[in-house]
């Protein structure tokens, strides 16, 4: 206890929250902008000339003999993106009146794009140029569904998987 009275402690508490909010706002914005810029750049270089579908057939699959060596293969990608203090605060406020939680939406889409990108990168490095039967799902590492009482961290957890293969007329080689 200090000798300034209980009002001072409350003030300190407020100052802490305010500081965390400012850090979250600043750092969160920078991280998000950097991430989005990197996603755009890598999507452009990696996804051009690559066919990604959730069709269960193999559209435009290369004809010819399939051997164990050039057979299609399972590829996958994962991404976990954390919320920042400011986003979490915004979401908590928005939950009072309800409606769209935009700050969390962008979080989910960033994680999803990252997971698909990693899957595509794996396919590319194995020498494939198409992925079919893509499945995208999410899971809960934070454990908020197991223990709702616990104050869980807000994070977007996305898993993507699909079957990579070679398209007709392409000359994709392992890089």
């Amino acid at each position: 206890m200090n000798n300034y009275g209980p009002g001072f402690d409350t003030l300190i508490g407020f100052a802490w929250v305010l500081a965390l909010l400012l850090v979250g706002l600043g750092a969160g914005k920078i991280t998000e902008r950097r991430h989005l810029r990197r996603l755009a750049r890598e999507e452009e270089s990696l996804l051009s000339g690559m066919l990604i579908t959730d069709l269960r057939q193999f559209p435009m699959c290369a004809e010819g003999s399939t051997t164990e060596a050039n057979a299609p293969s399972l590829v996958s990608g994962e991404a976990v993106v954390s919320s920042d203090y400011f986003k979490t605060f915004l979401a908590t406020l928005k939950k009072i009146i309800g409606g769209e939680l935009r700050s969390i939406e962008t979080l989910m889409s960033r994680a999803r794009r990252e997971a698909v990108l990693r899957m595509a990168r794996q396919a590319r490095s194995l020498g494939y140029d198409a992925i079919c039967n893509v499945r995208i799902e999410s899971t809960d590492i934070a454990g908020s569904t197991v223990n709702p009482q616990q104050k869980a961290l807000i994070m977007a957890t996305v898993l993507a998987s699909g079957t990579a293969y070679r398209r007709a007329g392409s000359s994709a080689r392992a890089v």
Binding site: L20, T31, A79, V80, S82, I141, I154, T157, L159
Partner: peptide
């Protein structure tokens, strides 16, 4: 580390690794 990252935001590399 994930708890701290929840303040500033960004990818939780540890948990991504965990899933992989």
């Amino acid at each position: 580390a994930a708890g701290l990252k929840n303040i500033v935001g960004g990818e939780l590399k540890g948990y991504t690794e965990l899933l992989t």
